[in-house]
Design a protein around this nucleic acid. Structure first.
Length: 295
DNA sequence: CACTCGTGGGT
DNA sequence: TACCCAAGAGT
């Protein structure tokens, strides 16, 4: 399989014509909220679809427009505002990150990747997304979309394998030398994967780098999927945790007797296990047999 | 590396 | 209708 790098110019030209108008791509968004806005958007976008994030992001930044404002909130307020975005630990991590930003970075979101990586809830993707999409520095931003584009165009595979550190290295080799060009390239790879080179039904007829795509050249073969099958959600502990936390969010700040949380849940042991794990994560507080969101 | 951790919309 | 999947991170 000959390795042909995507044509960066063709890709960024396409991005200039076709990019979606998303809030965090507007200049005004960066002017008003600075790196904090980008950080919040990236937290929300971790495994939550763009369309569902947008209204929550606007409400969030309206309420907490700076790291200092965020740090002054309580965990209960944060978890309730997170609502049904999913993976509510992200809300706690964002809150803790804000506190560290205030305490250790002068209330300014740090610019260097190492400092960003040291904050809770910030990994390889989010750290570089902030450094690139707000600060404009040159780093490889690798998300699931980017990995799929690389897997198809350069490896001739129908789907990417599991994430690995090699992804970062390969993306680095593709980046244009100029800072601004490389930021555009990062965004364009993600946008291509999100809107054209999609997981299920790719629209190769609309792809700006179709001529360089090894997978298309090979006739779009199904090369198999090396990713593991996700555990069943129905009846899972995750579903139970979600139901418990939703009940406590809906309790509007009042403590709830432990027995009256999901009283009709089929598996009582599973319900208790979910409560215990939520307490261990800091998402729920227990005292005298009562449960509430953490103060 | 393998596994956990929510939620809702699209096909 | 049952999946599939979504700008990942932590352990």
């Amino acid at each position: 399989m000959p390795i042909i790098a995507p044509d960066a110019r063709a890709l960024t030209d396409w991005y200039g014509r076709s990019a979606r108008d998303l809030p965090w791509r507007r200049a005004e968004f960066h002017t008003v909220y600075g790196a904090w806005g980008t950080l919040v958007s990236e937290f929300m976008l971790q495994q939550t679809p763009v369309a569902r994030v947008i209204p929550h992001l606007e409400a969030w930044l309206d309420r907490w427009p700076t790291p200092a404002a965020q740090a002054a909130a309580t965990p209960a307020e944060v978890v309730r505002q997170w609502a049904n975005l999913g993976y509510p630990r992200r809300a706690l991590w964002l809150h803790r990150a804000a506190i560290e930003i205030v305490d250790r970075h002068g209330a300014r979101v740090p610019r260097d990747v190492e400092s960003l990586l040291a904050l809770p809830g910030i990994g390889d993707y989010t750290a570089r997304a902030v450094a690139v999409f707000h600060y404009g520095d040159r780093h490889p931003v690798v998300d699931t979309n980017t990995r799929r584009v690389i897997a198809r165009a350069m490896d001739g595979r129908s789907q990417p394998g599991p994430p690995s550190r090699r992804d970062l290295q390969r993306m680095t080799e593709l980046l244009p030398a100029d800072d601004a060009d490389s930021a555009l390239f990062n965004a364009a790879m993600m946008e291509l994967g999100a809107t054209v080179c999609t997981a299920r039904t790719p629209r190769c007829e609309a792809c700006p780098i179709a001529l360089q795509c090894g997978w298309l050249a090979a006739g779009r073969p199904d090369t198999g999927d090396t990713r593991r099958r996700p555990a069943r959600y129905e009846g899972s502990d995750r579903q139970t945790r979600g139901a418990v936390l939703k009940a406590l969010r809906d309790a509007a700040g009042l403590a709830t007797p432990m027995e009256s949380v999901l009283p009709d849940w089929p598996d009582r042991a599973q319900r208790d296990r979910a409560i215990d794990s939520l307490i261990a994560d800091g998402l729920v507080e227990a005292s005298d047999g009562m449960l509430r969101l953490p103060a």
